[in-house]
Design a protein around this nucleic acid. Structure first.
Lengths: 163, 163
DNA sequence: CTTCCTGCAAAGGCTTTGCAAAGCT
DNA sequence: AGCTTTGCAAAGCCTTTGCAGGAAG
């Protein structure tokens, strides 16, 4: 089991590899290139950590690169996921989709403090192995998983008298 | 690892125990009793399998027991979760909350076919142990988890040529 | 020139909230 | 009596969709 730390931001070369991968997906699906889509991809890929659609919209607006419309971002994000650039995350929070970079980033799951919102990322191969065992046992080809551990962190336990 | 099968519906005695537990929670929180709430709890507890808020509303309406208003159901369900009668489930589906009975039902996680929607419930103590290890390692007191395995079931693999 | 992409506005679906009347204790 | 619960309607949020003009291949 390992604590997974925030990876460094994707460098220029990594960004280029990511966009190349996006171009491949776009080609495969018979779509067309677009500078707005690329700009959204860039902004999303440069993000460190988790972000909501709104975070991304704000950033795009404030950075002045493009003032992408929400509808456009909502249309682009699923494609970035399909291309393997992003993945949805923190699903258990509910309110609103959150994403994080998946490209050139190691797989990990999340441990979340439901009191203060702190998120610890960890990687535990032993669990992954058992997940594959489950899928195999029931004749499924495993394509993904949602695995979020919910609890109360040490700080909140110390602080909170309630409960 | 075990395949967890649909449990039998809660019998009358079980229902009574569940409602007693609800009354306790209600008392502890300084709330008041309510027949509408009890009727909602009854309907939810008698459900076999997963259900959406809308499923429950329809059932309440059609059964003629009470024609509970959606807002009321939305207010009552979190209380039933807090009381340990229900739990949220199939979070990864996104669109709309789903629940299932948790009271007098063994813990289990879900393996979901993203093509046909089939859901297999399984219990795997080894995974639970590892989850506890993760929480301990990071100083969290574990209170719950979301664990859903996503894949393609055997039938869909056989049927589908695409991807 | 055909097809896709974008912005815009509107609609959609689920859920929450403010309020007044009704229900508990 | 004093507080909670309920139904109702309205609003809130996030997200999707239809359309027309612009961009890409």
């Amino acid at each position: 089991m390992r604590h997974v730390t925030q990876p460094p931001a994707l460098d220029e070369a990594g960004l280029e590899r990511a966009l190349e991968r996006l171009r491949r997906t776009v080609r495969q699906r018979g779509l067309k290139g677009s500078s707005v889509r690329d700009a959204i991809a860039r902004a999303a890929l440069l993000r460190r950590g988790h972000f909501s659609v709104d975070d991304l919209l704000k950033e795009l607006r404030e950075s002045g690169v493009v003032d992408a419309h929400p509808a456009t971002v909502y249309r682009v994000l699923p494609l970035l996921v399909e291309a393997g650039l992003l993945q949805m995350t923190l699903v258990s929070k509910g309110d609103g989709a959150r994403y994080e970079r998946a490209f050139e980033r190691e797989h990990h799951d999340h441990l979340i403090c439901t009191r203060c919102g702190k998120v610890v990322e960890f990687e535990f191969e032993a669990i992954e192995v058992l997940q594959r065992d489950v899928a195999e046992r029931f004749g499924f080809r495993l394509t993904g998983h949602v695995h979020e551990l919910l609890g109360i962190c040490k700080d909140c336990s110390a602080a909170g008298v309630e409960r």
